[in-house]
Design a protein around this nucleic acid. Sequence first.
DNA 1: CCAGAGTCGTTTAATATTAAACGATATGAC
DNA 2: GTCATATCGTTTAATATTAAACGACTCTGG
Lengths: 153, 153
Amino acid sequence: MGTRYKGAKGEVRALNAFINLVRAAESVVGRLTPVMDEAGLTVSQFGALETLFHLGPMCQRELGAKLLKSGGNVTMIVNNLEKRGLVTRSRSGKDRRRVTVRLTRRGRVLIGRVFPVVLAGIVREMGLLGPAEQEELRRLCRIVGKRERAIGN
Amino acid sequence: MGTRYKGAKGEVRALNAFINLVRAAESVVGRLTPVMDEAGLTVSQFGALETLFHLGPMCQRELGAKLLKSGGNVTMIVNNLEKRGLVTRSRSGKDRRRVTVRLTRRGRVLIGRVFPVVLAGIVREMGLLGPAEQEELRRLCRIVGKRERAIGN
DNA sequence: CCAGAGTCGTTTAATATTAAACGATATGAC
DNA sequence: GTCATATCGTTTAATATTAAACGACTCTGG
């Protein structure tokens, strides 16, 4: 968004905060993607692998909730990861609607190799702020990002 | 990203700041989209109209730079806005490679109606923070989002 | 003038994303 | 048990997005 808007002080303040928030997120993510590209992973694919890596196996709906992606999209993301042998699908025994997604050995190896590189990038990018500033940024973002976002399916 | 990562203090701090930054941006944008949906505008279309509204006519490349979108995408965004009669294209006289995009009367009316509603939403969302906090968030985001992102075409 | 390099917008192909409709399964009220 | 309702994953159709190749145009240095 442009910054040229002339309005009440409070509006300008909110607008500027908002614009810079969105820009900062896009900017940092954009600078992290080359690492994922090298591994042949999209941001969403990386996110899925990383979630499974750190939180363990889960069903697709849960994964979609973590990634803020629609159900149909999760199906495609998992399809592509499955084709590459990075995850497996298995119907849950107790609730046969649920499909548990699980990292394979290959998937674990891949994300175990890529994640540290991405993490190093995050540390580098956020390192533009001092420790206290990073914590303050986190605090402010948590407040603003508090409420849930509804996503289809 | 999950928050379960166990690592060095600095890494955890950077990761948490990053995660909450991205989530906050997605979250706030997500809560603003219903207004744009009602007007039949995608986020990108809204961004294009808003940019033209506040900064005036400009060529597609410049628009793409503001929106952080690729050249091909700008072509499509402008195509769709043009089809709906919200903007016009015109070849520049002095540099015939350039296409100046300009709001039509209809386009100006539409964005003039929709923008205030979106702005009110932004004020509402950012209002979860006090004035000083909004300014601090802006300051931190500006630092982190400083560098440019390269985009194709 | 002119040749080469660079810029701008478009097209194309591949992928991502969403919403909506659907089939299978589970759950709850009766 | 059975029917109504809800949930989960998939499919489908429409749109968005990017990268790469391309054509038109400009500019620069001779």
